[in-house]
C-alpha cells in the first residue's frame, strides 16, 4: 500500500496533464455541443420545412448512431477520405456532435416552453427576430435548460473516457498507467474513478450556480441554500433529458 502511495505521488504530474486533457475535451465538447444545439434546436422549430427537415435528420442521426461508433469512425475512417484531425480534435468533434444533438432537443423544448405571450409582447414592441431571441426568449429558456444541460455535461464527461482508445492521455490513461505501475487494480481504478467523480462534482456545482443565477434574474430568486448549490441533482442520461425537455 505504501508503495502504491509512492507511485501515486510520482504520477501526480501525469494526473495533472490527464485532468487537463479530460477538461479540454469536456469543455471543448460542451462548447461545440452548445453551438450545434442552438443551430439545430432553432432549426428544428422553424416553420420552413427546408430548414426543419434537415435539422431533424441531423439530430436523429447523431443521436441514433452511438458515440462509440462516431468517435472511432472519425478516427479511423475519416482520414481515408483525406481529412486527418488530431486525436483531441476528433474527441471534441465527436462529443460535441453527439451531445449537441441531444442538447438540441433540450434547447427546442425549452424555447417552446416560453409562453407565446412573450414573443407577442416583443413583436408589439417591434423588436427584430434576433433581438427577441437574444434579449427576451433565450434568457427565459436558459433557466429551464440548465438542469438538463448539466446532466448532459456529466454524460459528456463520462463519454470522454473513450479518448483513451484514440491515443489521448486523459484521466483514464493515467488510471491505466497507475494500474500497470502498481499492479493494484482496486487502488488505481479507485483513484481514477474518484478523480472523475470530483470533476463531475465540481461541474455540477458550477451548473447549479448558473441555474440559481438564471432563476434570480427571472425574479424567482429564492436566495440559494447551500444545499441547492452543493447538492447533486439526479443525473440522467441523454434520452431522458430529451423526454423532460417539453414539460420541465
Amino acid at each position: 500500500m505504501s508503495d502504491d502511495l509512492q507511485l501515486l505521488i510520482d504520477s501526480l504530474p501525469d494526473l495533472g496533464n490527464g485532468v487537463l486533457v479530460t477538461l479540454q475535451m469536456t469543455l471543448g465538447g460542451a462548447l461545440l455541443a452548445m453551438v450545434v444545439a442552438l443551430v439545430l434546436g432553432f432549426g428544428a422549430r422553424t416553420p420552413s420545412l427546408w430548414v426543419r427537415a434537415p435539422s431533424r435528420v441531423v439530430i436523429e442521426f447523431f443521436r441514433g448512431t452511438s458515440l462509440v461508433v462516431q468517435i472511432f469512425w472519425l478516427f479511423y475512417v475519416l482520414p481515408q477520405f483525406g481529412f486527418k484531425m488530431e486525436a483531441l480534435a476528433v474527441a471534441i468533434v465527436a462529443l460535441g456532435l453527439n451531445y449537441g444533438a441531444y442538447a438540441a432537443e433540450v434547447v427546442r423544448g425549452s424555447i417552446e416552453s416560453v409562453p407565446t405571450g412573450q414573443w407577442e409582447a416583443a413583436t408589439a414592441l417591434n423588436l427584430g427576430w434576433l433581438h427577441k431571441v437574444r434579449r427576451v426568449v433565450f434568457p427565459q429558456a436558459w433557466a429551464l435548460m440548465i438542469p438538463q444541460l448539466a446532466n448532459l455535461l456529466i454524460q459528456l464527461l463520462k463519454g470522454s473516457a473513450l479518448a483513451f482508445y484514440i491515443t489521448l492521455h486523459d484521466v483514464y490513461w493515467w488510471t491505466d498507467e497507475l494500474q500497470r505501475d502498481t499492479r493494484d487494480t482496486f487502488f488505481s481504478f479507485g483513484c481514477g474513478l474518484i478523480v472523475y467523480f470530483v470533476i463531475a462534482y465540481i461541474l455540477t456545482w458550477g451548473m447549479n450556480w448558473l441555474e440559481e443565477r438564471a432563476k434570480r434574474r427571472l425574479g424567482r430568486g429564492t436566495r440559494p441554500r447551500l444545499r441547492d448549490v452543493f447538492g447533486l441533482k439526479p443525473g440522467v442520461p441523454s434520452e431522458i433529458a430529451r423526454m423532460k425537455g417539453g414539460t420541465a
Binding site: I154, A161, F189, G192, L193, Y196, A200, Y201, L232
Partner: peptide, 19 residues
C-alpha cells in the same frame, strides 16, 4: 448511487473486469 452515476461506465467496466 451518485458515485456510480457520475463516473464513466467505460472505466467501471474495465475495473470490474480486471478484478
Amino acid at each position: 448511487v451518485d458515485f456510480i452515476r457520475m463516473t464513466p461506465l467505460l472505466v467501471q467496466l474495465v475495473f470490474v473486469y480486471l478484478l
